[in-house]
Design a protein around this nucleic acid. Structure first.
Length: 477
RNA sequence: UCCUCAAUAGCUCAGUUGGUUAGAGCAUCUGACUGUUAAUCAGAGGGUCCCUGGUUCGAGUCCAGGUUGAGGAGCCA
């Protein structure tokens, strides 16, 4: 007999028909009611066992976590918690689960404990909802770009350029740690290594992506990215997935339009397609919020927050305007900021970004036209000579969701900037070629996928929105 | 990397000014009950009090160093 998913059965009108399901036992109550989940939906289906006529040794094997195969009749439920249930005619335990050892109990676990059981945590409601949402978001990312004429480009994960300047890199080498060949100066001789040069895991596919945008027009990357920073925060991972669109002939305004349109599209997609999981996460967040003191509670629930972002325009503010707002803000005047805002040119601290997004504008904010000397070498210098066409999209509770810019398309200006920052031209000869041959205005941005998942699920720690998080001192699994 | 806090049963936690036999709820096991919804009731088992060293007649408790975790900062996406 054909097996149905629980998702299908809960929506079906197959009342009084024979059905077949397989899944894992969530709870077994009163020696009679199995709450069965197969991952197809957050909802369980209740399977009612005729315990009076059942083999007792079989009943003893129906434990939390066990895999079972069930044949039975779909009926309307006599109980209150569900509309339909399965009257079991045949039950087979496919895989036992020793209740003495199985770590996932039918009770609340701390997120810290579940992180230590990352291989099993997806069997909980919270993590299954998060991971289904992550999958849906990932699909929506591709759908958005594909529908809008973008080509998906796979930039290299092992990279030979270390001039991207996006952060500390993980080395890739075949050498033994204490037995690497050295040259006459006593330095490690990478010309003898696998690639014949020093190589690293990518921190960004942007530079390679730019070369493809200068031929395919509109491209995006969506792949793993690595940072060897010793970052211990709720927003950073050593291995994360980044989305990097790059568009030829787009200026910064078009770039801001793209980022806003893109974010709204993928959030609308999950609002339309992940209602059960979002409803669960919405109530989960509401319960979490209740534990906080009144002052720290967020004004909006998860669903409310998502709809708000989709329905309202992001506020676009230049760095210079932002500095003015901050300088005249109450916390600055009352010296509540740890880093007071006095002069133009300083980098904004988290507390300043949070003030702008959460207190002043109360909506996502796009900051643009930053001082040149706090931004990367490839960003387009403005006519004022002191700011660059950079932009950051800031989100409440998350901070920087997107970082992007219009790229410097003028070869001479780019070379000058690289010289200033001691970036050797030989390293990036291929990148400079895009400016030598048919250069054009172009723009792009990077969006940390996990930060998007963080926002869409209402989770608060980035380690809880990726299956197996990689962070300093932790590469278990 | 810096600052703050934490680590006690499988999980979540309590443990008084240092004091003799370290507790609770949940989970597990045994039994009762059976249309339950985190079922209920009765009973039982379960401890390297993170590690190393120190102070003390005596350390879960105090001190030092370390490990791991959490929150915040920096770096950023």
């Amino acid at each position: 007999m054909k097996r149905s998913s629980i998702k299908e059965l809960l929506q079906s009108d197959k009342i009084l028909q024979e059905v077949h399901v397989k899944g894992w036992v969530r709870t077994f109550r009163s020696n009679r009611f199995i709450a069965l989940n197969d991952g197809s939906t957050i909802n369980n289906i209740q399977c009612v066992v005729d315990f009076e006529n059942a083999d007792e040794t079989l009943l003893k094997r129906i434990n939390t976590g066990a895999a079972v195969s069930i044949h039975g009749t779909l009926t309307e439920s006599q109980g209150k918690g569900q509309t339909v249930e399965i009257q079991v005619t045949n039950l087979e335990v496919l895989g036992d689960s020793n209740p003495d050892e199985y770590p996932i109990q039918p009770k609340k676990h701390s997120l810290e404990f579940l992180r230590e059981n990352a291989h099993l945590r997806v069997r909980t409601n919270t993590f299954s909802a998060v991971m289904r949402l992550r999958s849906a978001l990932s699909f929506a990312v591709h759908q958005y770009f594909q529908q809008n004429g973008f080509y998906y480009v796979n930039t290299p994960i092992i990279t030979g350029s270390d001039a991207e300047g996006a952060g500390e890199m993980f080395k890739v080498t075949q050498f033994e740690a204490n037995n690497a060949p050295v040259n006459e100066e006593g330095e490690i001789d990478y010309s003898k290594d696998f690639f014949g040069k020093e190589t690293n895991l990518t921190v960004s596919g942007q530079l390679e992506g730019e070369t493809y945008a200068m031929a395919l027009g509109k491209i995006y990357t969506f792949g793993p990215t690595f940072r060897a920073e010793n970052s211990n925060t709720t927003r950073h991972l050593a291995e994360f997935w980044m989305i990097e669109p790059e568009v030829a002939f787009n200026d910064l305004d078009a770039n801001m339009d793209l980022s806003e349109d893109f974010i709204k599209y993928v959030l609308q997609y999950v609002l339309d397609n992940c209602q059960d999981d979002l409803a669960f996460l919405d109530s989960r967040l509401a319960q979490e919020e209740k534990k906080k003191p009144q002052a720290e509670r967020s004004e909006m629930g998860l669903l409310e927050k998502l709809r708000f972002v989709v329905d309202n325009n992001f506020k676009r503010v230049s760095y210079t305007e932002a500095i003015e707002i901050l300088r005249n803000s109450k916390p600055n005047k009352k010296k509540k900021f740890q880093f007071p805002v006095n002069e133009w040119g300083v980098d904004l601290q988290s507390e300043h970004e949070r003030y702008l997004v959460e207190k002043h504008f109360k909506c996502p904010v796009i900051l643009f036209d930053y001082p040149a000397n706090i931004k990367a070498f490839y960003m387009r210098l403005n006519e004022d000579g002191k700011t660059v066409r950079a932009m950051d999209v800031l989100f409440p509770g998350i901070g920087e969701m997107v970082g992007g810019s219009q790229r410097e398309e003028r070869l001479d200006v780019l070379k000058e900037k690289m010289a200033e920052l001691n970036i050797p031209e030989e390293e990036l000869w291929w990148y400079l070629d895009t400016r030598k041959f048919g250069t054009a205005v172009h723009s792009g941005f990077g969006l940390g996928f996990e930060r998007l998942v963080l926002f869409a699920t209402g989770m608060s720690n980035i380690r809880d929105v990726i299956p197996f998080p990689r962070t300093p001192q932790n590469a278990e699994f």
